[in-house]
């Protein structure tokens, strides 16, 4: 489809990013979660998965869902530069989503982590996969990270010992409103990778195929009584 000149002016520059190589993780319940990069063609199922959580204030799901919804929409509509989305799927059903973007070849900007399944460390696994993509695959030197929930602060800032960069404000600030900004450096990643990041590659074709067609969850533990028709 032809893109008119005005639309071209609205779009950000796009640098080709290396693809994230899919991996699989055995969750505690014995099920296999495939972690792979989501494509633009899958935005509908991603947004549909996120949408019900807009109404869940518990554990800050509402703000994370609302922001991730808008970020993925912005990616779809070419209103954000160099964003990538990773998805975790169990038998094709989305268990969690993370998104992020590359600011420049040396700097990543971590956006959001949304665990749909809870109690299986899906959020922690997907955050680690996101950092793996930034530093190991894209080769960035560091990633700026913020937390919007106490759980996030404990999981990222404390457990990864992220460097506090808030003293550098406003010159150094995360894109999510300039809230206290922390950084995962390559050195910190090297220190924590073994205890935080796992997964087996390559994923056998038959297992990868289970995640070919992503599906929205029918139920959410965060939303008792909700059932997708």
């Amino acid at each position: 489809m032809a893109i008119d000149d005005l639309e071209k002016k609205l779009r950000p520059p796009a640098d080709p990013l290396k693809p994230y190589p899919a991996k699989m993780i055995t969750l505690a319940n014995g099920k296999t979660m495939v972690v792979r990069e989501a494509s633009r063609e899958e935005v509908g199922v991603l947004l549909g998965t996120i949408y019900p959580l807009l109404g869940c204030p518990k554990d800050f799901y509402d703000i994370v869902a609302a922001r991730m919804y808008s970020e993925i929409l912005a990616w779809y509509r070419y209103r954000v530069a160099n964003e990538f989305v990773l998805v975790g799927a169990v038998d094709g059903v989305i268990a969690g989503i993370v998104n992020s973007r590359q600011v420049d070849p040396s700097l990543g900007m971590s956006l959001h982590t949304l665990a749909v399944d809870r109690g299986l460390r899906v959020g922690a696994q997907l955050f680690a996969a996101k950092m793996e993509h930034h530093i190991d695959v894209l080769g960035e030197d560091e990633v700026l990270v913020v937390a919007e929930s106490p759980i996030g602060f404990k999981r990222w800032m404390i457990e990864y010992e992220l460097e506090d960069r808030s003293a550098g404000y406003p010159a150094v600030r995360h894109e999510l409103g300039g809230v206290p900004t922390y950084a995962l450096t390559r050195t910190l990643w090297e220190k924590h990778r073994r205890n935080k990041c796992t997964g087996v590659r390559p994923v056998p074709p038959e297992i990868l195929a289970t995640a070919d067609k992503l599906r929205m969850p029918a139920e959410y533990c965060q939303l008792p009584g909700f059932r997708r028709e």
Binding site: I25, T26, L27, A28, L120, R121, A124, Q125, A128, N195, K196, C197, T198, G199, V200
Partner: peptide, 8 residues
């Protein structure tokens, strides 16, 4: 091989 992270 994922157990040390899944069951940290």
């Amino acid at each position: 091989p994922d157990a040390h992270v899944v069951n940290n």
